[in-house]
């Protein structure tokens, strides 16, 4: 590729990917009249959208619910997936069928699990509870976590574990003192990715979270759809509030995120 084309092309690409975000940030600062002009930048800064948005929907509550279900969901995913992935990779538990099964479950669209899980959780009294959603998110991301973690596990030199065995170190002690510390970058990457996936999830949340006590940010945002004429500014504010946690993670953990996402590439 021609070097001279690089700068304009890259600028175009970055603009395409960031412009909608920038535009929304600008809308969040516009009054209603300003919005209908379609200009990029606000003519008058209209800060009122911020307190108004938090006033008109329970954004803080949604954020709290999201934080609870996403972080505990991700934690549950890791607690299940880390020892299991290690065992499957190292001991070849389930030969070829188990890994194929785990990854195969990822192919099914989530709508498949929606109604059956609803009935199951209802029978357990877990509909509209944080616990119910944590369980769903914890399990939902298992195939992703397995896929990400298994390439990290495969890259650990097996000799370290063998040395521990020879020294008579027990199974869980080896896992805790050798495997997990060395796997930490992979666990962190996986954890962040599962966290974001759970945070962004909409379908299950829309069905399982029936009241403000459990509704997450995406559900809260979708409620703005009710009256769409008047509140674009507030909608933009709420959307920004929803994105900020994820973007903060992205900025701080960019390397881990990218490493996690791309870990399956190249062997």
């Amino acid at each position: 590729m021609n070097r001279r084309l690089y700068v304009p092309l890259m600028t175009l690409v970055l603009l395409f990917f960031t412009f909608p975000i920038i535009f929304m940030a600008m809308v969040s600062l516009k009054g209603q009249a300003d919005i209908s002009t379609g200009d990029i930048f606000p003519n008058v800064l209209y800060w009122r959208n911020y307190p108004d948005a938090f006033g008109s929907i329970a954004l803080d509550r949604y954020l709290l619910n999201s934080a609870i279900v996403a972080s505990f969901g991700a934690l549950l995913t890791l607690v299940i997936a880390v020892p299991a992935t290690h065992a499957i990779v190292r001991y070849r538990i389930g030969r070829n069928w188990l890994p194929a099964f785990i990854l195969g479950t990822y192919v099914a669209p989530p709508i498949v699990a929606l109604f059956p899980l609803f009935f199951l959780l209802r029978n357990l009294g877990l509909v509209n509870t944080h616990l119910g959603m944590i369980l769903v998110y914890g399990v939902m991301n298992l195939p992703v976590a397995f896929w990400l973690l298994s390439s990290f596990v495969r890259r650990l030199p097996v000799e370290l574990e063998e040395a521990a065995r020879v020294d008579g170190v027990g199974y869980f002690r080896t896992l805790r003192s050798i495997v997990i510390p060395l796997l930490m970058p992979g666990i962190a990457s996986t954890g962040i990715i599962c966290l974001i996936l759970a945070y962004n999830e909409f379908l299950f949340a829309s069905f399982l979270a029936r009241s403000q006590d459990t509704q997450t940010v995406p559900i809260g945002l979708s409620l703005f759809q009710g009256d769409r004429q008047l509140r674009f500014g507030q909608m933009a504010v709420a959307s920004l509030a929803a994105m900020v946690p994820v973007y903060v993670l992205a900025v701080f953990f960019q390397r881990w995120l990218v490493r996690g996402l791309t870990t399956g590439i190249g062997k």
Partner: peptide
């Protein structure tokens, strides 16, 4: 890379609103 990553991380609901 961080900038390119942003759309991927954006909650789809938010992307739709944008």
């Amino acid at each position: 890379r961080t900038l390119i990553l942003l759309p991927l991380l954006t909650p789809p609901v938010t992307a739709a609103i944008m």
